[in-house]
């Protein structure tokens, strides 16, 4: 128990020191932390280990784009990619291991891109395309989901920024299958 307290205290102290005092370096050091839990005899040791980011080597950036007022747009705007909800290799970078979208302070996107990516992550999850990035109680098979959720669904990305969705009766009229089938 004492060791648990000590490591907890050390972790808190380390995080304060790491955020206030930074070591000088030419390239940007990116230190991630991984919480590791291991049992040594009677005591459980929980430590925050600093690990290098596996993404730094593969990072794609476009710094040549500037808007009219000389400001740099956010990295997704400057890349100008046409991301669809089926592009799970891109969308999976913005989620945690339980499939939850990361907040804006972590992703560093502008508000429009954050909303767009967030909605596309929701679309991909509803379509069952990122079924391995789901909470632990998930059965990890889209066809075992309940009711209407077990069937394949696709989405239209142009509906993301639609202000007014059609009314319920308009939807039935649009489907047109009510009286004619």
């Amino acid at each position: 128990m004492t060791s648990l307290f000590r490591t907890g205290f050390l972790l808190a102290k380390n995080s304060i020191i790491a955020s206030s005092v930074r070591s000088l370096s030419i390239t940007k050091p990116l230190n991630l932390k991984e919480i590791r839990e291991q049992q040594k005899g009677q005591s459980i040791v929980i430590e925050g280990v600093i690990v290098p980011s596996p993404r730094t080597e593969l990072l794609v950036r476009n710094d040549s784009v500037t808007s009219e007022d000389g400001k740099q747009p956010c990295y997704m705007c400057s890349l100008g990619l046409d991301v669809k909800h089926t592009d799970v290799l891109i969308l999976s970078q913005f989620v945690r291991s339980d499939g939850c979208m990361l907040p804006r302070r972590i992703t560093g996107l502008c508000s429009r891109q954050q909303k767009k990516i967030g909605k596309m992550v929701t679309m991909a999850q509803k379509a069952g395309l990122m079924i391995n990035l789901t909470p632990g109680n998930c059965k990890k098979d889209p066809k075992k989901r309940f009711g209407y959720k077990k069937f394949n669904t696709y989405f239209d990305e142009s509906t993301i920024f639609v202000k007014r969705l059609p009314k319920q009766e308009d939807r039935f009229r649009r489907s047109g299958s009510m009286y004619f089938n």
Binding site: V88, Q93, M130, I131
Partner: peptide
């Protein structure tokens, strides 16, 4: 294509857009 049907090496070596902030 579902993400769990893509080989793990391909997911790891795919160009990345987002990098985590410090700490």
């Amino acid at each position: 294509v579902r993400l769990d049907h893509i080989p793990e090496e391909e997911v790891k070596s795919f160009p990345k857009v987002m990098d985590y902030p410090e700490n």
